[in-house]
Design a protein around this nucleic acid. Structure first.
Lengths: 112, 112
DNA sequence: TGCCGAATTGCAGAAGTCTTCAATTCGGGT
DNA sequence: ACCCGAATTGAAGACTTCTGCAATTCGGCA
């Protein structure tokens, strides 16, 4: 497998590695939304949101188009929703492992 | 949904956002491997690989244990493989869209 | 044309990440 | 105890990303 392909994969994941960008993608799972609405649901400066949307656009995970006076954003492919779902599962598994380990530690004091 | 949870999700994706870390995870899909072997397959300094492995460990996507004189690494959950697969699909979709658009542009010159 | 809200861009300082070096830890074998 | 290879850690400099401000673009509408 070629080196640039690893670069592309890494870039794709790095694109998702930001709280605002994650929130945007989760909101877009329910369908296209105008910037205005994203702004009202995510506590962030307009210029900052624009920057983050630009990052998502550059990588191609979202697309934008105009609808009347508003700019709309949408997921470029439903696969993105799957990626987020897989991420949630891993997070769940990791946290469960941690809690499980913590619980086990508590159940068996130092001498155990 | 709480703000720290978005932080955790973002951190989880950011963890994958590095070519060396992606390669490590892909190699680990086939089963646990010693650091030594990862080193021989990824062209990177030992200390650098260690740093990247530490990042993966911190987030909990991999675990490590000792086997004889070697340190082994393994995926902490098979869900990680699914995440990588979803990433591949999106990358495919995005690149196909780009190529498709490019092809269409070439098929319909300026006047079209 | 001129105005208004919507959205983006440019920029600069702060904050974080990456890479490599040298130094260190850790077990295993003798 | 000593040495050796395996792996990790610490730290510094180069580089990238993030954030908020001000300035700008863009479309729609009077």
């Amino acid at each position: 497998m070629s080196v640039p392909l690893y670069q592309a994969k890494a870039e794709m994941f790095r694109t998702l590695g930001h709280p605002v960008r994650i929130r945007v993608l989760e909101l877009l799972q329910a369908g296209p939304r105008p910037v205005r609405e994203l702004l009202s649901e995510i506590d962030v400066e307009p210029s900052n949101l624009s920057q983050q949307l630009a990052v998502l656009r550059r990588t191609g995970v979202v697309v934008s188009f105009r609808d009347g006076g508003l700019v709309m954003y949408a997921l470029s492919t439903p696969d993105v929703a799957e990626l987020l779902a897989a991420g949630r599962r891993i997070l769940g598994a990791v946290l469960a492992d941690r809690d499980g380990l913590l619980a086990e530690l508590n159940a068996h004091p130092p001498a155990g």
